[in-house]
Amino acid sequence: MKTRYLSLPYLIWALVFIIIPIGLVVYYSLTVEVDGKLIFSWANYKQALTPSYLLALWRSIWLAFVCTVICFALGYPIAYIMASREYASKGFLLFLFLVPMWMNFLLRTYSWLSILERNGFINSLLRLLSLPEARILYTDKAVVLGMVYNFLPFMILPIHTVMKKMDSSIIEAAQDLGANGRTVFLRVVFPLSIPGVVSGVTMVFMPSVTTFIISKLLGGAQFMLIGNMIERQFTESRNWNLGSAVSVMLMVLILTSIAIFTVVDKDGEGGALF
């Protein structure tokens, strides 16, 4: 039973860093502190379901959705072109898209701050061209921009991988059977790339919906996404119980949406687009 021993480190890892913390979060979310003692209560969840939290949650989902759509619209063609025969040998182009990933996340976001701010790069440029100044920083736009910039590689990579692995003879078979470029794409290439799209969408949506740093830096102190609400409970407000309840809520929401997504994808796998 060698394999059992081999999986032991992983099991310990999972226990210490995943299962116990989640258990603690759930425990905190179901308790309130009374006279220094934790007692069972639904109060945290009741508060987590009040309008201010639901509004932040809705806003987070909406902005993450917009970010995912933009990442898909930008990332899919990039991945497709990069995987095509003409560019297959030009690996450095893909590399250029991925280089930002190697830079510190905070640094990247701070640099957008200086580009977008009142006297930043964009406004200087606009002024130079005697155009009216643009107020981008501390708006939804800036937050979405920051998210797209940070998470775009997570969309490109998985799609690029499935495109690269796609058997070129399958595409040739479709052409051989009379399909022009558009039909080949709609009926063969796109359906076969769906697994990549699914992981790309998941990998962009999840960090977008939970981000609090991007919204804090580019959205301003008053900009409240669900991530910021959670962060505030754990830092300023020091209400870990409420923070845990909101976290659990968000976690359940993400897990169910992933579950629905994968089930829908399973069904859709057999069919083409039309």
Partner: peptide, 22 residues
């Protein structure tokens, strides 16, 4: 003439069936 306009059909060496279709 591009392949899709030629009156020939091919049986490819590795079959090249569409895996997403029955």
């Amino acid at each position: 003439l591009p392949p899709y306009k030629r009156q020939v059909n091919t049986v490819f060496q590795k079959y090249a069936l569409f895996p997403n279709m029955n």
